[in-house]
Nucleic acid binder design. Structure first.
Lengths: 157, 157
DNA sequence: GAATTCCCCAGTAATTTACTCGGTTAAGCG
DNA sequence: CGCTTAACCGAGTAAATTACTGGGGAATTC
């Protein structure tokens, strides 16, 4: 697994689509302005996302991008893997021979961790994040005037 | 959160210490050879790790590095944060004003995700990975006659 | 047919990664 | 005491990635 600013751009852009794509497509120009990323760089990212079917482009005036699937069927892992190339570095030794067990051992341990992270991010969808965000917004707004900063406390409770 | 090859190097190196540090310190030269990383680059990484108290260096002949704490008290998040600088990109707006809600919204959603990943990696320790690895090895070997390759088992015992 | 917007690609500045190379300091050993 | 080993330290740099610039094209709408 790999988690870079590139992946962050992709995820936030996808979240932008999830939030604003309900009433018509979202243009890259909008996202570019919203997120402060250059248009051409966004185009590159979206070329990758489109290649994986995560977004769908509509040309012409009034055009833009939709999510390729419902937001609850797009995981964070999907998005990050689409833009981050995700090369396998595991290809070294299929079975660790008794000679150089060390490298094989640490690598397989890392692979295990990497897999855990990947599984974790597979279970989180764009819809999940949006939902959590809305809930947080709601409970922050809910009749709270002064103790709104400390929503962390009763959220933990 | 950020997850790069640099973080991977750090984690695998720390796993190397966790696996081999039981009977004396491990030299960077060894790790360099095991993991295929250059010595000086390792020195840089270990300078950062040492700065966070995650490793402890011993000079002179027979010297090397120990883990700074027991392996079950060092989380993956600790290791990755030590080498990856972990700059905050959240500092933009404390509370999103209703004006430019868009950028603030997607950013806070990302921050939420980032926090989730961080929490996840905080709960995984070096010891956890080693334990899982040994268990997997054990169950793979179960019924196997050639237990010669796994000196790890009786070294941990 | 003109504006809009996706689409595509080549080049490149900026940043990060990873390394080379030069040393110094502390510790062990004969 | 010298000698070796290894951690420590820092400047400089190749390589890779990130992020952008700029040039076009193709589909769609008005």
């Amino acid at each position: 697994m790999r988690l870079s600013t590139k992946g962050r751009y992709a995820v936030t852009a996808m979240l932008d689509l999830a939030l604003n794509g309900t009433e018509g497509p979202v243009t890259l120009a909008d996202i570019s302005e919203n997120q402060g990323i250059s248009l051409s760089y966004l185009e590159q990212l979206f070329a990758a996302l489109r290649g994986k079917g995560l977004v769908r482009g509509v040309r012409g005036p009034g055009g833009g991008y939709y999510l390729g699937r419902p937001a609850d069927e797009i995981s964070i892992a999907d998005v990050i893997c689409a833009v981050d190339e995700w090369v396998e570095f595991t290809r070294c030794n299929p079975r660790p021979s008794s000679a150089d067990t060390q490298r094989g051992m640490t690598h397989s341990l890392w692979d295990d961790l990497s897999q855990q992270i990947y599984d974790f991010l597979t279970k989180i969808t764009l819809a999940d994040l949006v939902k959590r965000g809305l809930e947080r917004e709601a409970e922050r707004k809910q009749g709270k005037s002064a103790e709104d900063l400390l929503d962390l406390n009763h959220r933990a409770a």
